[in-house]
Simulated scan of single mutants.
Amino acid sequence: MKRLLIRLITGIVTMFFALLASPTLLLAADAPKKSSMNNPIAIVIVVVIVALLIVIALLSYVLLGIAQFYVKRAKEQAQQNGTAAKTTVLLLCCLAGFSAFAQTDNAAVVTDRSIGGLSEATFFTLMTVIAIELAVIAALAWFLKRLMAKEETRQAAEIANAVPKDSLLKRIWDRANRFRAIHQEADIDLGHDYDSIRELDNRLPPWWLYGFYCTVIFAAIYLWRAEVSKSAPSAIQEYTASVAEAEKQKEIYLANAANNVDENSVKLLGADGIAAGKMIFTGTCAACHGTDGGGGVGPNLTDDYWLHGGTLKDVFKTIKYGVQEKGMKSWKDDLSPVQIAQLASFVKSIKGTKPATPKEPQGEPFKENTADSANATKTTASITQ
């Protein structure tokens, strides 16, 4: 419909301007004829006016139909627009008829100048009618184009809403891999078939390519910094720094782990721990037990008799919680678990030594286990040496 209307309007306008360009019809020197309707120019112009009226009627009909279809809720307004368009067509028809009658009335008037055998008033009146018709056609075509564009937009929106959209994650996944469609595999098939496994000349996925490009860039920067400009540490320097950092972390871990020791998890320490325990004993315990552990106010710690148990765990517990009825205070608030373990290890290490002035035995005899006794004897020998 749209192409037909365009071709019709183009043909009418072309014919009209072809007639205007004819030198034998325009600006005739002879006097106008008695009847304007017998003039070929008048006949052609009237035909053009009628054809344009037909075009206006067709456009009005199409415009009215689209408006009624698209604007259902505004049916009354669409009908009013259609009525206005029909009224415009009727008015133009009346104007064309009036122009024709005016030509008949003015045909008998003889003027000095004429255009194609028509008087100037008649000619310009007909041209005005044609101009008004063309303006109306342009307006109707513009409204028709607007309505058709809205309809196409609505249909496109309905189609877009009808088709479910992929999730953001799926779109990212498809973009990162950029798979070939199944119907395109025939274009990249290399013709090699191994047990129904076909070899395709497929492009590597973008994520793999970009990852490879990043490694190349990183390698170039690292090579420049480590080997050329020496602005970054070498592999050996990084290893040395990592080992030193690991040793620090190990010391911190061991210190924290040692602070978690109690009477149930205490173990006999080595020479370094016993030496640290000896210093603690000299500063806190020598006043009651003697410098060499032979006893004083407190019992002798070098013999086989013990008042509160002779195992390492018993000694740790006695130091930690104290014995209030015997006058020994609790050291858990003054010493850390590590220091109590060191002090207990030192007390166990001086068993069997010969103090200068040993105190008489107190408590019950205690026999050390074979393994614990061997460890204590070995540790005492290392300290003595």
Rank of each mutant, 00 (worst) to 15 (best):
residue 128 T to Q: 14
residue 250 K to W: 07
residue 59 L to P: 00
residue 302 T to P: 02
residue 203 R to W: 04
residue 150 K to N: 10
residue 123 F to L: 03
residue 34 K to P: 11
residue 284 T to L: 15
residue 67 A to N: 09
residue 223 L to N: 10
residue 12 I to N: 03
residue 363 G to H: 00
residue 95 L to P: 01
residue 26 L to F: 12
residue 1 M to S: 11
residue 60 S to K: 04
residue 66 I to S: 04
residue 70 Y to G: 04
residue 228 V to Q: 06
residue 202 N to E: 15
residue 376 A to W: 07
residue 322 G to C: 03
residue 137 I to H: 00
residue 87 T to F: 10
residue 242 S to L: 15
residue 285 C to Q: 04
residue 229 S to H: 08
residue 9 I to P: 00
residue 199 E to T: 12
residue 92 L to G: 01
residue 337 P to A: 03
residue 120 E to I: 12
residue 274 I to T: 06
residue 99 S to R: 06
residue 174 D to E: 13
residue 205 P to I: 14
residue 297 V to Q: 08
residue 126 L to K: 06
residue 74 A to I: 04
residue 277 G to Q: 01
residue 76 E to T: 10
residue 235 A to Q: 06
residue 347 V to D: 00
residue 224 W to H: 11
residue 128 T to W: 07
residue 357 T to S: 07
residue 283 G to A: 15
residue 74 A to P: 03
residue 109 V to C: 06
residue 197 I to Q: 09
residue 300 N to S: 02
residue 351 K to F: 00
residue 155 Q to S: 05
residue 208 W to M: 14
residue 121 A to I: 12
residue 190 L to M: 12
residue 304 D to K: 14
residue 30 D to V: 13
residue 57 A to W: 09
residue 119 S to W: 01
residue 280 I to R: 00
residue 342 Q to N: 11
residue 216 V to F: 14
residue 364 E to R: 04
residue 355 P to Q: 05
residue 12 I to V: 09
residue 323 V to E: 05
residue 258 A to L: 10
residue 151 E to W: 04
residue 80 Q to K: 12
residue 22 S to I: 10
residue 310 G to L: 00
residue 356 A to N: 13
residue 378 K to I: 09
residue 7 R to F: 07
residue 302 T to Y: 00
residue 37 M to D: 08
residue 294 G to L: 03
residue 58 L to I: 15
residue 20 L to Y: 14
residue 145 K to Q: 09
residue 214 C to P: 03
residue 198 R to M: 08
residue 270 G to R: 04
residue 187 D to V: 05
residue 47 V to Q: 14
residue 304 D to C: 05
residue 103 Q to L: 03
residue 13 V to W: 02
residue 273 G to Q: 01
residue 42 A to T: 01
